[in-house]
Amino acid sequence: MIGAKSELRIPAKRVSLALRVSRITGLKWLLLFIPLGYIMVLMFFSMFDFFKLSVFNDDGFTLQYLSHIFTTPVYLKVLWLTVKIALIVTFCALIFAYPVAYMLVRTESGLWKKVIFAAVLIPFWISLLVRTYAWTILLQKNGAINKLLLELGIINEPLDLLYNTTGVVIGMTHILLPYMILSLYSVMEGIDQRLLQAAQGMGARPWKAFIQIFLPLSLPGVLAGSLLVFVMGLGYYITPALLGGAGTPMISMLIESNINTTLNWHLASALSLVLFVATLLLLLIALLITRSNPMLKGLE
């Protein structure tokens, strides 16, 4: 029993209940391990069970499913497309997010800050499915975007924005943008604005101060945000499934069809393992970059 070894040998004064509870030996460890166990253990058990399927079948250990993935051109193509889309989405999100995050930390008006934050966060509260369907309406042949471009005379016939890579990139960038903005913001917020003033005082024009001082100091945020968006992009399912369709299969869609349609759980597991290992490798590379670069080290 945890409470058995109580050390309440305090002179017969009244000790409050909160104090008594806080004195229970090992309570803080218990409070740490229950949620940790909930997060890690339960998930890992089921996950490893599932991963086992990728290298074990009824005949015992086998690498046939993994080698099948790496020798079948279709699978390699899907893998490459997945990485490509995740990269493009990361890049687009970074380009869009950086100015927004910069404005968030630089603006002195509290109202503006609130407005920008609201604009960034409100989509977060709307269901992913709703947002994705909204994009299908916007992007279709006679959707709002095509109509607008036609009206303005920028294009003569409607663009193919849906059920291809373009549609997937547009939708995923929109959905992952807040993650990028918040990652950048959290780092930029820690940059002392007076450093820019100091640089200007020493003779740096504002853009030079930005390039030489602010940009390098914001790189940890760029790295963190890019990594987050890229990893999330690799495993994204709903948005590419709805906006890309069969024309742009990403790895997650392949896993889904193997589980639900072709019922090849071994192959689904092998694909998941590839995705999982690729993600871990990426995190490792990012860690190594951070370690080796003094500019990114210990600035937060």
């Binding site: 002392d192 450093l195 003033q197 100091a198 200007q200 005082g201 020493m202 003779g203």
Partner: peptide
């Protein structure tokens, strides 16, 4: 400010954390 050629010592020093001491002074 960048046209004034005035040296300033800031209250919190405002040293650039991503530069060495030499690079800070050389800035």
């Amino acid at each position: 400010p960048y046209e004034r050629e005035i040296g300033m010592l800031f209250q919190n020093y405002a040293l650039f954390p991503h530069m060495t001491v030499s690079d800070n002074i050389a800035y």
